[in-house]
Computed example of a mutant assay.
Amino acid sequence: MTEKSSARRHGRRRVKRSPVGSSPGTLIADPSASKPALSVTVMSASGFKTFQDVSPDDIRRLKSEWPTIWVDCVGLGDVGLIADLGKIFDLHALALEDTVNTGQRPKSDFYDEHGFVVLYAIDDDENHRFEQIAVFFGDGFVLTFGERPGDPFDPVRKRIEVNGGNRLRARKADYLAYALIDAVIDSYFPRIEAIGAEIDQVEDEIMECWEHAQMGALHHARHDLIVLKRWLWPLRDAISGLIRADATYLTAETKLYLRDTLDHVSSQIEITETYRETVTSLIEMHMSMAQAKTNEVINLLTIVSTIFIPLTFLAGVWGMNFDHEASPWNMPELHWYYGYPAALATMAVIGVLLFLYFRWRRWL
């Protein structure tokens, strides 16, 4: 199996669960998970600062000094560090367990002091690889947990750096959480558009010149659309849950922006469904064209065989070894002076007449 074909299977992820019988909220790291790297962005209406490779003690200090703090944890291989973050921000144990046990269904949960959202981002578009992103947010803080380096948050980071009338820095943490969630959802649009371009190209190729390899491209496109559907449908429910939530740390103004995010998800679902129908139609058309070509070949071979049947019959008759000296009725034409050219001429006339008849009946 090639690396690319193996990567396509990341759409069917295994959920990494705690051992059977363990207590709820048990944190067990995946042995293959990378070690966490923490980065912190603190902000206020007047400014911001960003810190790399911080410790839990640094986070406690920054949390008390700034009105809004964003902690970005990349890597889930150290459950001790994740548990420390949970204590600092009073995160629920069940939410932390879902963070460590990747492969969760996209969802949104709400606790007394914070909200929790699970969603998926495309972290390797070339190999169609997704990673789980967990977002915690409450009064004055946002935490994001990713499996690997690379995320769609760069547009948000650039917006934080803009000076003058910066809404991200001036508003509460729930607006920052919205911006991060919206960035993940918007990152699906380029992939969806790329799939649409691939489908259009294959459709043009099929109409221009049918080939067997086109079926593989269509199946790959359908697989990618199925994976997108798997993450987008529950994600729409998660965003709807955020809009309906009755939590003090989620303001009505932020919910208005989340409605726009919900429109984006709904639009992506509609586009993927349209593309899936298009791919299904193209697969059916490709199979019909393959059947038509097969029938065309069979028809041609049948016509050729039909033309040669009487010729083979004549050749078989004239090839029988009867003794002419025993009886004058035994193949007298074999002793004709022009017997051979007459036989060839007879065969040629029969073949031409059959060919003209097939053309007249429009079988050719």
Rank of each mutant, 00 (worst) to 15 (best):
V156P: 02
L235K: 01
T272Q: 09
G150T: 05
A197P: 07
D200Y: 10
L81S: 04
K16A: 12
R276G: 14
M1F: 10
I298W: 03
K16G: 05
F116A: 13
P56H: 02
F153P: 03
E211N: 10
V40T: 02
L76C: 10
F110Y: 14
F89M: 03
M289V: 08
L76A: 14
D72V: 06
H92Q: 12
L311M: 09
L300K: 10
Y175H: 13
D260T: 04
D224A: 13
F189Q: 06
L258I: 08
T2Q: 06
M215W: 08
N321R: 06
P152F: 00
F51W: 01
A247F: 07
L356I: 15
T248G: 11
G241W: 04
A33G: 12
P24K: 11
V15W: 12
I199F: 11
T102E: 09
R13E: 00
S34W: 02
A33H: 12
G80E: 14
D125I: 15
V79C: 08
Y338W: 10
Y178D: 09
D246F: 03
D186C: 03
H128F: 11
W70R: 07
T254W: 00
A95N: 06
L96P: 09
L301I: 09
H128P: 03
Y111N: 04
A37D: 09
L225W: 05
Y111V: 13
G21S: 05
L301A: 02
G80M: 05
H335M: 08
I192C: 07
I298Y: 02
A342L: 11
M285I: 14
P328G: 11
G138A: 09
L81N: 10
T50F: 02
P152R: 04
I181V: 11
E198C: 07
K158I: 11
T50Q: 12
L353T: 14
G351S: 15
S55G: 05
E203A: 13
S240W: 09
T144P: 08
L232T: 04
I59D: 09
G138W: 06
D124H: 08
F322S: 06
V118Y: 09
A121T: 07
T254M: 00
V184S: 01
R259A: 06
D78M: 05
L314I: 13
A343P: 02
P31F: 15
H324Q: 11
N101I: 00
V40G: 02
T302A: 14
R60V: 14
E277Q: 04
L76M: 13
R362V: 06
L143W: 04
M285C: 08
L85T: 08
D57H: 06
V227G: 05
A121Q: 02
L235I: 07
I181D: 01
R8V: 13
A342C: 01
I206L: 13
F189C: 08
D58V: 06
A177W: 02
L354I: 14
A217E: 15
I199T: 15
I226F: 03
T278Q: 15
W210Q: 08
R259F: 01
Y338H: 14
P152G: 00
G146P: 07
L218M: 15
I206N: 03
S281T: 11
P310A: 10
A134K: 11
L354Y: 00
D98S: 12
D58L: 05
